[in-house]
């Protein structure tokens, strides 16, 4: 992430505004992997992520003259991309996309009573691939608002403030959504490792 930050400062906004093709190509080159990664985390679908990626850069290049530099270029792009992702979701299923769906009250009842510290289990290392599948699957099932915060804050490494700015919510909303996402993912892994342990005992 440090590498990309250095590159960010080297992109000339003036040249972008002048529609300098060399600079536009560099701009797309530098930022497109991040935007695609974000879109993949939010949408969990390659075609949708690609649509959002293309729309984001079409809009960004078109609107660059309006970029005032109040936020960083990447924050501005992330904002366009998250809006595009939301619009795409709404187009696909009109009337059903809410930031906080599905209902979260169920979660409270679902919490396991079994308290196990699996953080140092050797299995965590051994089953990395399976653990990843569990995580990806769980992320895709988070409510949209949590998924957005998760992708920006945890994967893209943005601060609470930047994440709040991009999503146009308060910092405390970002913190709450992040906490819920973390608790949920931790719970999923918790269940997974407990299940594994049970299986191993049975297999023996």
């Amino acid at each position: 992430m440090d590498k990309s930050k250095i590159t960010e400062t080297e992109i000339s906004i003036d040249k972008l505004i002048a529609q300098d093709r060399d600079e536009l190509a560099r701009f797309v080159e530098v930022y497109s992997p991040r935007i695609y990664r974000l879109a993949m985390k939010i949408l969990n679908n390659e075609q949708d992520a690609e649509d959002v990626l293309q729309e984001t850069f079409i809009k960004a290049i078109h609107a660059i003259s309006g970029f005032e530099g109040r936020s960083s270029l990447s924050t501005w792009l992330y904002r366009i991309a998250t809006n595009e992702a939301l619009m795409l979701l709404r187009r696909h299923s009109p009337g059903t996309v809410s930031i906080d769906t599905p209902a979260e009250e169920d979660e409270e009842d679902q919490e396991a009573l079994q308290i196990v510290d699996w953080s140092n289990q050797p299995e965590v290392k051994l089953s990395a691939k399976e653990v990843r599948l569990q995580i990806n699957e769980a992320v895709s099932r988070l409510p949209l608002g949590q998924r957005e915060v998760f992708a920006l804050r945890e994967i893209e490494g943005l601060s609470v403030k930047e994440t709040a700015e991009i999503l146009n919510v308060s910092e405390s909303v970002v913190k709450t959504r992040l906490l819920r996402a973390r608790m949920r993912l931790r719970q999923v892994l918790n269940d997974y490792f407990i299940e594994r342990q049970k299986r191993e005992v049975t297999d023996d």
Binding site: S32, S119, N120, V124, I135, V139, R182
Partner: peptide, 22 residues
């Protein structure tokens, strides 16, 4: 335990950043 496992969870998904290039 919540602290240990939450830390580990975060570590696990940060390891898996996935796409570096398009």
């Amino acid at each position: 335990i919540v602290l240990n496992t939450m830390k580990k969870t975060i570590e696990l998904y940060r390891e898996d950043e996935g796409i570096e290039d398009l």
